[in-house]
Design a protein around this nucleic acid. Structure first.
Length: 488
RNA sequence: GCCGCUAUCGUCUAAUGGUUAGGACACCACGCUUUCAAUGUGGGAAUCCGGGUUCGAUUCCCGGUAGCGGUACCA
């Protein structure tokens, strides 16, 4: 590779809410592509639709990216040589180029009302014609235009699509040829003075020296318009790579409307997904290197990523697979680190169930292999935080056993605990097993009651893990409580 | 309707002009286990359809079908 020019790519979200997982994947691919080639990654805010603007979006978008571990070189928050990186602060620029296009007759003024356009579209649709602007205003004379302009009439500026075909090469999909007859005379400058995506995007990508436009597949049909614009402005177009869509279970593009909160990165953060897991999962949604490796660090992804191995077909966002990745990453975490991450969830349990979230490291270790999300402790750790297990003789003694046997198991376990000096699972298992053997009770007769006494749940970690996590004092106290239940 | 993109197990995908079409998730069974996990072993499961090119096509070409996307003074 003899790249004389630095690779520059961008992620250009609109401020309409949270970071979308599809957007996150687009950002990730851009980031990986840039980092792999020592290039630069830029964030640009495309806030040209005043109506859809949601205050606070930018911060949330950026913090979402940061959480994922994606960093950028230039952007709205940190500036850069091509600042500003917010389109609403660049309106003069777009207007200037729109007028330049008017002057070169590559664009024209349009004074048509929204009503007329709607009506036109409706008519075309009912007669099964492709809906397109009818170039009504193209027939206006220079005088007519001047008159309307000086009268202060609302206008837009439209691209005058030339005849012929437009051809371009997509890095992922190869050559794409579009008949210009199928391209509408796109509005470039809206009547409110803001540019449309098409104009702003092309102008900024050019001015910001973007070399590769890596974006979602939904932009593929627009790419030809953009090529036309680059040509009309006399600029060389960047390379394009249109990524396959991220789909929901129904194979439709993942969207806020259809999929709700499941599209926001923030949701996954709140539920206790690890950023490394989400990144790994997202990276493999539409891309895969040669071979069978599944687990990748961000650095490994950077080393291996290439656009040529990006898939063409859309990929379903499979939550089960994400869950598996998340569990894999949770298992890899040092227990102390996991314990730290779990504290907010533990505090919540304390608030609802009573017992303080103290000495939770052993608990965390016991839970580690069982968690698919951090938030899952809310159901898997309740036994630790409950003050009252609500035990009854019925649950303490297995059907085939007898209360006397249960009492024996509980008493013997309780008595042995104070003698144990080496408080670890292996030793607890050795000691408890020895006591159990001595008692002459079967596994079920002995272990089930003890486990119930400690956890109060039919499904829980094993006796030794419970003891280890609860600690000697709490264990004895719980065994005592269980014995009292049987004595009644 | 019109335009475009796409098509390998249910899902994410690997591979190839000749393979028993590989892996992972999910699923099922078994092992380990007092229960739940984790873990080990095994299993079922795919080249959309029809033509062509070729000795041979899942792979290349064409057509169909289906899915998705676009068709805004939204991005």
């Amino acid at each position: 590779m003899n790249n004389q020019t630095t690779i520059r790519v961008r992620f250009a979200p609109s401020p309409t809410g949270e970071l979308h997982v599809g957007g996150a994947r687009t950002a990730l691919y851009n980031y990986l592509f840039a980092r792999a080639q020592d290039g630069q990654f830029i964030i640009r805010l495309e806030d040209t639709d005043q109506e859809r603007y949601v205050p606070g979006s930018l911060d949330r978008l950026l913090s979402g990216l940061k959480w994922l571990g994606i960093s950028w070189d230039e952007g709205p928050d940190k500036g850069g040589p091509y600042a500003p990186y917010i389109q609403s602060a660049r309106l003069d620029l777009y207007k200037k180029y729109a007028l330049q296009l008017i002057n070169t007759q590559a664009a024209y003024y349009c004074f048509c009302s929204t009503e007329r356009l709607t009506e036109l579209r409706l008519k075309q649709q009912t007669s099964n014609e492709p809906s397109r602007y009818d170039r009504c205003c193209l027939n206006l004379t220079a005088e007519q235009i001047q008159t309307k302009l000086s009268a202060g009439e609302n206008y837009t500026i439209r691209l005058l699509v030339p005849p012929g075909k437009t051809e371009f090469s997509d890095l992922i999909r190869g050559t794409i040829i579009i008949d210009n007859q199928t391209i509408d005379d796109q509005v470039l400058l809206k009547s409110d003075g803001y540019p449309t995506y098409h104009l702003a995007n092309v102008v900024d990508d050019y001015l910001m020296q973007i070399t590769h436009v890596i974006r979602g597949e939904e932009w593929l049909p627009s790419a030809s318009k953009h090529i036309l614009l680059y040509r009309a402005l006399g600029w060389a177009a960047p390379e394009f790579a249109h990524l396959p869509n991220v789909l929901n279970k129904n194979r439709a593009k993942l969207s806020k409307r259809k999929d709700g909160a499941a599209v926001w990165v923030e949701t996954y953060k709140e539920q206790g997904y690890l950023p490394e897991a989400l990144v790994n999962f997202l990276a493999l949604l539409g891309w895969h290197p040669t071979g069978d490796q599944e687990l990748f660090t961000l650095d490994e992804l950077i080393k291996q990523f290439s656009l040529t191995r990006v898939q063409k077909a859309g990929a379903i966002f499979d939550i089960d697979k994400l869950l598996w990745f998340n569990n894999a990453y949770i298992k890899k975490l040092p227990p102390a680190e996991l314990d730290e991450l779990l504290q907010p969830f533990y505090r919540q349990l304390t608030a609802t169930l009573g017992r303080p979230a103290k000495n939770t490291l052993n608990l965390t270790t016991v839970l580690q292999t069982r968690l698919t999300t951090l938030g899952e402790v809310s159901s898997l750790a309740t036994w630790f935080f409950k003050k009252d297990l609500n035990l009854t003789a019925g649950v303490l003694t297995p059907a085939q056993s007898h209360n006397d046997k249960t009492k024996l198991a509980l008493r013997q376990t309780m008595e042995i605990i104070p003698t144990i000096t080496d408080w670890n699972i292996a030793n607890l298992q050795t000691v408890v097993t020895a006591v159990k053997e001595q008692s002459g009770l079967s596994n079920q007769e002995f272990l089930w009651p003890v486990r119930m006494a400690l956890s109060g749940e039919k499904q829980s970690p094993d006796v030794y893990s419970l003891l280890w996590a609860l600690g000697a004092d709490e264990s004895i106290s719980r065994l005592q409580t269980a014995r009292a239940v049987l004595a009644e």
